[in-house]
Design a protein around this nucleic acid. Sequence first.
DNA 1: AAAGTTTGCAACCGCGTCTTC
DNA 2: CGAAGACGCGGTTGCAAACTT
Length: 331
Amino acid sequence: MGRPPCCDKIGVKKGPWTPEEDIILVSYIQEHGPGNWRSVPTNTGLLRCSKSCRLRWTNYLRPGIKRGNFTDHEEKMIIHLQALLGNRWAAIASYLPQRTDNDIKNYWNTHLKKKLKKLQTGLDGNIRDGFSGSQQISKGQWERRLQTDIHMARQALCEALSLENPDNLTDLKPSNGYYSYMRPTQTSTYASSTENISRLLQGWMKNSPKSSKTTSEITSQNSSNNLNGTDSASSQGTPSATNNDSISADDLEFLFNLESPTCDVSQFMSLDDTVKFPQEISLFQDESKPFPGSDAPLSLLEKWLLDEGSSAQGHEEDLIETSLGDTGELF
DNA sequence: AAAGTTTGCAACCGCGTCTTC
DNA sequence: CGAAGACGCGGTTGCAAACTT
């Protein structure tokens, strides 16, 4: 049985959104909050599919989104998390609250994949007979996912238990379910339009309890991120940003840093005061599975995960087998 | 300067999962 | 408990801008 289309194909507008449409959508969400997307086109008069409305909001109009200008740290996080989680962009995005899954996905596909491929090609000559892509692939994505979840869960637990700085738990999202501020958007061909929209939201911001703090935070971030207005800044500090033809020493250092066992989530958490675990926890909830190996097998998995960067090769197969045996029944 | 090619990104599509009744 | 609807995710596409020849 086929699922009917989410919306009537006839009369549904497609393609780029106009500023007017954006304003209508933002105004509606400002009033009602995001959600119930099905009713959005009906109630707003937008000739758009509900999915299109949701996508436009989550990927572009939603306040708090940082666009372009990926920092070196963000790059590393994405690469590391992609290695651990696979192409679970939404999960990866949950560790970068200001980035959308679409943005991360695009950035991965257009920048990072090439960069890593180049690096790997360069390294293959050096470490071909050691561990390489095939062995890493043999781990299996679910295995990495599992390990990451375990590790994240422990980190989240530590965070939750320590709570040294309650401010760190301030989420970008207010409790009412939708964002309470609008940051100025970056320069783009569309910037003037979205800036207008942000002005439109000024009143909304005032109504929000957290608006003043978060707005200033975001504004300062924005000013540092968008001064260039060009994509060149997106690779600032990245090793191969300026040389596409050779593998530099920095490239190698960059790559090996990714493999470092010290590159764990706690490192990620220190990137930005606003980067925390709130959505990470939801990641686990989304999985809605018991943490496999919450007792003994966990340590093995953890050990493997933590040792991955330094000495995983020797015991990899054993550990995989062990964890498979321990956790297989859970799936 | 024009034509061709490449790149980057916004948006769409289809499927899986969740929620509601 | 099952069906239907709604939502969310990841892959893919199309187009405009940037770059090269």
